[in-house]
Amino acid sequence: MVPPPPGTQSVDRASDLVARVVRTPGPVTFSELAESSGLARSTTSRLLAALERAELLARDEEGGWVPGGLFDLYATRRTDDELLVDAAASTMHALNERTGETVNLGVARRGTVVQIHQVEAVFYLGSRDWVGTDVPAHCSALGKVLYAFDALPVPGGALDRLTPRSVTTSEELTAQLPGIRADGFAVTVDELEPGLTGIGAPVRRHGTVIAALGVSGPTFRLAEDARATAAVVAAHARAVSARLDHQPHRGAA
């Protein structure tokens, strides 16, 4: 192990204490910190007092050490979308490497599905950049996932026909939702535009579906093995959900 530069020992020790508290799910006692860090109790006490003054650490009602107010301040300055993208980004890249296709993350907004992050396909022939685009949810795999798991209300009346395979009534859309819930994913083939297939799965936070993760690409590459690919997408969506469950709860993204 490379020794720390001269004059940084106190900083390194204080940083280590902060890291131990932040990485622990619940409050950490003074004795646990002193023992796990290997520091003298007097040194631990002095460093914790300095970290408390700087609001990097704080004590709960029972005296246990928890992350300080500066962490809360930082978290509140970030949007829910940013936190969601942070939790999903590495898994989206892994899904892209596994499938080679465009990977999207979408949320319900303004009565439809909006893409908030995308990883481009590795192929020359891929999908367009959907980030920031309002997609007709009834023709989208991500949208159908959000409908199926009550993250998006099903619209009433007639629906726009974008292709000959588009769903055109709320009754037809509603009839598809139990199957999507049972499968844990949605597949759309040539519904948004001819030649485009989408596959989506739910992303949950503390049990509530707040987003959908999916892949999209040419029908000739995706449609034949869509269900097998959907199982892969669903597994990656569950990985994002597990990561979100370890973030402080701030409500739906």
Rank of each mutant, 00 (worst) to 15 (best):
M1P: 14
P3F: 08
P6H: 09
R13P: 01
A14R: 15
L17S: 05
V21A: 04
V22H: 01
P27I: 14
L33W: 11
E35T: 15
S37C: 11
L47A: 00
E52P: 03
E52S: 01
E55F: 00
R59S: 12
G63R: 02
G68K: 00
F71C: 00
R77C: 13
D80S: 14
L84H: 07
S90I: 10
S90H: 12
E97T: 15
N104W: 00
N104D: 12
L105E: 11
V107D: 15
V114H: 09
Q118H: 06
V119K: 07
D129N: 14
W130M: 08
V135Y: 01
C139A: 15
S140L: 07
L159V: 14
D160K: 04
T168F: 06
T169A: 06
T174V: 13
Q176P: 09
I180F: 02
F185V: 09
F185R: 04
F185C: 04
D190T: 04
E191Y: 08
P194D: 09
G195T: 13
T197R: 02
P202I: 13
V203W: 02
H206S: 05
G207Q: 11
G207H: 10
G207L: 10
V209W: 07
S216P: 07
S216A: 08
L222G: 13
V232M: 07
R238N: 14
A242H: 15
L244F: 09
H246S: 07
Q247G: 01
A252C: 12
